[in-house]
């Protein structure tokens, strides 16, 4: 992929982000932060590439540490978001 196509994806994604985030209800802003935190750990992709590559031991070890750090975030981020979201409950309606 050349630079311009990547840039196009990036710019369009910024607009998608803009509209999607404005539609998030303020009551869920804390879960929004924790889930964005979890997904930004997709940087683990780069870490895995570094850890898997042969050729530079230094690069490999940096990659492994990055994999561990990003994993804390991925698992911790999604789990804590799940925990928070499961607490949001609607009022129980008393019928009759």
């Amino acid at each position: 992929m050349d630079f311009i196509s990547i840039l196009s994806i990036f710019v369009l994604a910024c607009f998608v982000g803009y509209y999607v985030v404005w539609s998030v209800t303020p009551a869920l802003h804390t879960p929004l932060m924790s889930v964005t935190n979890a997904i930004s750990s997709v940087i683990v992709v780069g870490a895995l590439i570094a850890a898997a590559a042969a050729g530079s031991p230094g690069s490999k070890w940096l990659g492994l540490v990055a994999v561990a750090l990003a994993s804390v975030n991925i698992f911790g981020g999604f789990a804590v978001t799940q925990r928070m979201l499961s607490m949001y409950k609607k009022r129980e309606r008393k019928d009759g």
């Binding site: 992929m1 630079f3 990547i6 994806i9 990036f10 710019v11 994604a13 910024c14 998608v16 982000g17 803009y18 999607v20 985030v21 929004l32 932060m33 964005t36 935190n37 997904i39 930004s40 997709v42 940087i43 992709v45 780069g46 590439i49």
Partner: peptide
Amino acid sequence: FTLHNTAMIITGALVGSS
């Protein structure tokens, strides 16, 4: 951008705007 990876770019843009 460095890795030419769409998942990372989309996520980065989302999180950045968020």
